[in-house]
């Protein structure tokens, strides 16, 4: 790392910081119950619920902090928070 004059930083570079390790509860996806509404993906503060082309989502456990908003707001209870096994 070399500090540029003024300390400009490259965009999106927090990705090196894998926040998944913060997680206590882990979102478990019940795909069969998902109606592809996308609310989980929209709300996720860590951009860790990613909508796929087919409308279903995948969870990025590298960054998901386990806040549980996705599970709490899912209208079909298709996401369940389970204790993280370390």
């Amino acid at each position: 790392m070399k500090i540029a004059i003024g300390g400009m930083v490259e965009p999106g570079s927090t990705r090196v910081n894998k926040t998944g390790g913060w997680r206590i509860y882990r979102p478990l996806y019940h795909k069969d119950m998902c109606i592809k509404c996308g609310i989980c993906s929209l709300l996720c503060p860590d951009s860790s619920v990613k909508a796929q082309e087919d409308g279903y989502v995948i969870f990025d456990y590298d960054y998901c902090k386990g806040c549980g908003i996705c599970a709490y707001e899912c209208p079909k209870d298709a996401i369940e928070m389970v204790l993280e096994e370390k």
Binding site: I3, G6, G7, M8, V9, E10, P11
Partner: peptide, 20 residues
């Protein structure tokens, strides 16, 4: 060399911890 530019989106004014 570096400016606020939507085509080259840099971050200006980040915070520095004691290591930097």
């Amino acid at each position: 060399e570096h400016i606020l530019d939507t085509k080259n989106p840099k971050t200006f004014g980040s915070f520095a911890d004691p290591s930097v």
